[in-house]
Amino acid sequence: MRLGVFDGNRLAVSTDTEVIDVTDLVPGPDTPQGPLQRLLEQNLGHVLAAPEALRDSPRIDPEKVAWSAPLPRPHKIIGAPANYRAHVAEMNNPNTIAEWGLFLKAASSVIGPDEFVRLPYSDVRTDQEAELGVVIGRRARNVSREEALDHVFGYTCVLDITIRSTEDRSTRKSFDTFTPIGPFVVTRDEVGDPDDLELRCWVNDESRQHSRTSLMIYSVPRLIEYASSVMTLMPGDVIATGTPEGVGPLADGDRIAMEVEKVGRLEVGVTADGALPYVSRLGRGTN
């Protein structure tokens, strides 16, 4: 099942031919976390799986649907740095996820498809990093690798936008607009093995990244095992599983597109409107 959010607070199932509004099947008030978060917290995925649920729900003209981020404010966004050896090599640093561990990104950095990444600095390189995103479906704490996928609801596309500067990863990757997600979350049953998916990324017409998740150092089950040994994973948490080689600088007016096999295609723009020189940033120095 392919789930998306439109009009800010409407949850839909998207098929190859139609968009089905299932918001009324997920009770509860509107919140900044959105209707998909409500579904996950109430464990209502089985409700949508019932044939009569989709049969009796209203259809929306696909041409009139503008998708937004499926999880606009997840409780946690967990990043996996240096999780492809070829990316480790291109960054000229021998450390991998085994040495770096995990990092967190601010939930306020999320945007949806066709929105714009805003470059904060005019003179510091900012890169695209295309990644498979894992959406947690039920609470996970100290889960084994063998049981890890039982805690997954589905998968999505994630762009982990990154400034190449001296600050900690959570600072360099948490600017507003630095985590495009979507447009869909595809349920685990439709994706199958998350560790054997093709991943591609383009900037404008240039192919920058082309790899497979089979080349990850820590597989999806191992990432979940590791993350859940450190922190409790909650429904709606997103794990960005790391990026392959091919990261590169972004510029004003660029268009980023990424695809993950069986998961979908995410596209966003880039703007430098309001960008400032790095030396003018707040937080610099000791004063």
Rank of each mutant, 00 (worst) to 15 (best):
L276M: 15
G137K: 00
T177W: 01
V47L: 12
V134S: 09
P235H: 11
T187E: 11
G182V: 02
V191N: 07
D252S: 14
G28R: 06
R281Q: 09
V124T: 13
V5Q: 06
V88Q: 10
I20A: 11
V117A: 08
R10H: 06
P249S: 03
Y226I: 07
L11R: 03
E129H: 08
R281Y: 04
E115P: 08
T271E: 05
G274D: 05
R172C: 10
A98M: 07
T232I: 01
N9A: 10
R118Y: 04
N142G: 08
E146A: 13
L102P: 03
D21P: 06
I97D: 08
T166L: 13
S229N: 15
L54Y: 01
G248W: 10
V186D: 08
I224F: 10
A240L: 00
P32D: 10
V5Y: 04
S229A: 14
V5K: 06
T243L: 15
R222K: 14
G269E: 09
G101Y: 01
C201H: 00
Q209K: 04
D254K: 11
V135I: 14
M258K: 07
I161C: 05
L44D: 06
G242S: 09
Q209I: 02
A49D: 15
E115W: 11
D237Y: 08
L39I: 10
G264T: 09
A272Q: 06
L197V: 07
T177K: 01
T156R: 02
G45S: 05
L48N: 02
M91C: 10
L250H: 11
T31C: 04
Y121L: 12
R85H: 14
E245I: 00
I181P: 02
R73L: 13
P94D: 02
A148F: 06
V268S: 02
L250T: 10
A275M: 13
L71I: 12
T126H: 09
G182S: 02
I239T: 08
Y226H: 15
R200M: 11
K105S: 11
S165L: 01
N9F: 05
T156G: 00
V191A: 02
L39H: 10
